[in-house]
Design a protein around this nucleic acid. Structure first.
Lengths: 214, 214
DNA sequence: AATCAAACTGAACTCAGCTCAGTTTTGAGC
DNA sequence: GCTCAAAACTGAGCTGAGTTCAGTTTGATT
């Protein structure tokens, strides 16, 4: 299991933060945030329950951190994938493919993000949780902005028909991340197959002209 | 607030079940399932906390009931909307439009369904909860089947290019229900505007031919 | 060895969800 | 009007996951 997707700069060498996050991703991904016992996470890491509070203010704080890191990775992956694209159509394809170029652990992380996105709507009582929440909201806005900007460029270049870029960005994102609701690693469908299929859908949605009503 | 979307045949005239469900929809929709106190629901209905257990086995049982009724309504709306459609293209448009022809309360209900869909993945400990979960899963499968069948008909008739109907059905559903993640009644965008936009996206996705790479 | 911060622990607290044992309300049938 | 059963409801108390606290251990540095 790759640990770097859950590591941050300010983690010391003795820190169990990444290990806790990895264990929490497993638990939250398998049985859901609410159903996982916080103590189960501690057991998997091999520490007492109270040691968790050395690293996280609460179970929710841990979840919000997982979500923020997932969003951070999505943002970075988008930028890297679309950086040198020769056209907006190529950039669009690259962006969708990048969204599915993930390890099983990162898939879990994305499912968790998707399942608990509603958590970002309401204010949090504690300061550290609220800080993470705000960071998540900004990253969500950033990711939406990335897609909207790609679309705007394509429309300006005449590659894509003119349509509301923000709504289109949100629709694309809904289509792309909606997959995490039903995809399971090891299931009947390969991620590669899904990626190709969704890429086609996105391209038709964005670049396609309205066919005549039949 | 319409109450019929939350009523069932076996509710007697004195039953507060629909009222509890309506209050729960408000609470769960506003602050989320986890953050709402079960006692807050009781307060809104005007009964003691323990009276809730006369109608529901648990808070989760109430949530699962809300989800099942939402799915039941979606299934019914799809059938009604597509029943007399002269072509698969018309049926597709009608199905998408029907998915957005909802009262604000039903919008909340759909948001709740969407937010807690992961709850359906894992078995429930108690029998009544498990029964509701199974019913939800069957309805989800039914709704997916409805869409897939519509697509298959259109492909057989030559209206839509041949593509995997199940994946396409799931993609359409992801696109359609993804809206509930960001749409809020009273927000800047009218539901009618969103409905038209998403309808266009769906039609291009399903009926559109792959444009040449640009 | 002394020191200090990071890492950790066991016991106890909190409070939302829930159980239980019993009471009140309602409507149908005499 | 009275009886009775079922539905509707209640207050007191239990339960357990999340959390706090006061103190201990570990390990790198000097």
């Amino acid at each position: 299991m790759s640990i770097e997707a859950l590591t941050e700069a300010d983690d010391g060498p003795r820190s169990k933060r990444p290990a806790i996050l990895a264990a929490a991703v497993e638990c939250f991904g398998e049985v859901g945030y609410e159903a996982t016992k916080w103590s189960e996470v501690a057991d998997r890491v091999g520490i007492g329950q109270t040691a968790l509070y050395h690293y996280f203010e609460s179970k929710a704080h841990c979840l919000l951190t997982i979500m923020r890191l997932g969003l951070r990775n999505s943002d970075a992956a988008f930028r890297e994938a679309t950086a040198g694209a020769p056209s907006s159509s190529h950039a669009l394809r690259a962006a969708v493919e990048a969204a599915y170029a993930l390890s099983p652990q990162e898939v879990q992380q994305n499912r968790i993000l998707q399942s608990n996105i509603a958590l970002l709507a309401n204010e949090r009582a504690s300061r550290r949780e609220e800080t993470e929440r705000q960071a998540c909201r900004e990253l969500v806005a950033q990711v939406e902005h990335n897609w909207a900007e790609l679309l705007e460029r394509g429309m300006a270049a005449g590659e894509f028909p003119r349509r509301d870029p923000q709504m289109m960005a949100r629709s694309l994102l809904g289509l792309v991340v909606g997959v995490w609701r039903w995809y399971r690693p090891g299931g009947p469908l390969e991620l590669r197959t899904i990626s190709d299929f969704i890429t086609g859908c996105c391209v038709r949605m964005v670049a396609g002209r309205e066919p005549d009503a039949g």
